[in-house]
Design a protein around this nucleic acid. Structure first.
Lengths: 226, 226
DNA sequence: TAGATTAGTAACAATTTATTAATACCTGTA
DNA sequence: TACAGGTATTAATAAATTGTTACTAATCTA
């Protein structure tokens, strides 16, 4: 994950708050929590979270009311709002979506899945942060056209090769382990052998030349200009 | 040194235990197994594994009961607990997550995926300290690029030499015995002759110059600026 | 200073790791 | 269904790193 997303979690059960906070933080999110739904609105204003995860059944103000308020706020209405719901509350979904809720997540929560799910939702909502085109010496990596230029020479790379090169080139000099590369290009839930990275590296070298990607034996690969 | 993660696997099927053990070990894990879930708790106490992989359906004590016990133990509750589940048991997931289980893995098991998945889960829990780059006088030891800089001069060291230099340089002035060096760079369970250290020291000196690593005869080596 | 201990060095062997080519596997499409 | 492009796996080969040894040099000590 490149950007660190901020999540606001609201639930009256402190244990659940703790579990969720713990797990999301482990997965690289920044997490704010409260157990009072009366505070959701002002906290959202203050923190500008990338997503709000909100219990429906709350003792003070229920999730629907909060959602309505958020969705009516000019400043906050673009923040994806996700309901947390116990199994037996599922029938109330209809109501939630009418209010502009983005999704439902049922308790009990599956930690590994939660992060993935929220990440997906955020990406859908927030305009994918613009990844810049890169210019490194005579090499230009152009996301707009999905093309690599070496001076005037136009080189076309298939997706995986392009993204792999992009990751390396986005931090020139930094060594990426195969594991790093896999999790960033393939995603954390895909299981692909490490040798696959080597093969893609070779294909890239074949196309742009051998002088840009350096192997650090036993560690990984890096992009480097000589 | 790459840390070796310890997994405790519990399943009543000895064949499965063997398969899992074999595959995890091949992927660099340290593996302990038992086919009696009544033993899980005390084994966990004794071994302090980095993760417990536990079958649900067990003849004596089922996985849920074990999970509950572990999660209620102050000492063990931070060990990620992963259930092994047969396809047709998936509906029981609900129960497991309530108990604080971290994940489910369905049988039949795909070996390649298993290692990756467990590694991911462990890393979520154990956050490894980021080792800082070092700047000592004109010498910079840069872990990001895995390079050593002497002023503007760029020096590339292979892994072992790099790590050895890094250890010495992380406590400038401190003398490390060969034994210290071996256990920290090679790991405590690897047998390598002490003369090997000398050879690596020589190679490092050859590359960065003789003026940084000092020999204390009869004791060891230290990194020192003059 | 002789003898003993410890470290340095070069050459070689062993091991680990990466490269590469061939092959198989998808997935979408004509 | 066959094809094509992209992607993943495997296994052999190649290359670099790492470890050992045997010898030499330096240092210590009695």
């Amino acid at each position: 994950m490149i950007k660190k997303y901020k999540i606001l979690v609201v639930d009256d059960d402190l244990d659940i708050l703790e579990i969720i906070k713990f797990n999301l933080e482990r997965n690289g999110f920044e997490v704010a929590v409260t157990n009072k739904s009366t505070e959701t609105y002002e906290l959202a204003l203050k923190l500008k979270p990338d997503l709000i995860l909100h219990d429906i059944m709350m003792p003070d103000l229920d999730g629907f009311q909060v959602c309505r308020k958020i969705k009516h706020s000019e400043v906050l209405k673009n923040i994806p709002f996700v309901f947390l719901t116990a199994r037996n509350e599922e029938h109330s979904e209809v109501q939630g979506f009418d209010l502009g809720a983005e999704d439902y997540i049922a308790k009990p929560i599956k930690p590994a899945a939660l992060s993935t799910r929220l990440k997906t939702i955020i990406k859908r909502y927030i305009k994918e942060e613009e990844l810049p085109n890169l210019q490194l010496g005579i090499i230009k990596i152009d996301r707009d056209s999905y093309m690599v230029y070496k001076n005037e020479e136009k080189i076309s790379l298939p997706k995986k090769e392009f993204e792999l090169l992009y990751i390396l080139a986005s931090s020139p000099g930094k060594v990426f382990s195969r594991e790093d590369v896999l999790s960033r290009v393939w995603g954390s839930d895909v299981y692909v052998g490490e040798r696959t990275v080597d093969v893609h590296i070779r294909k890239i070298r074949e196309k742009i030349g051998d002088n840009y990607i350096t192997t650090i034996k036993g560690v990984g690969y890096k992009f480097e200009l000589n």
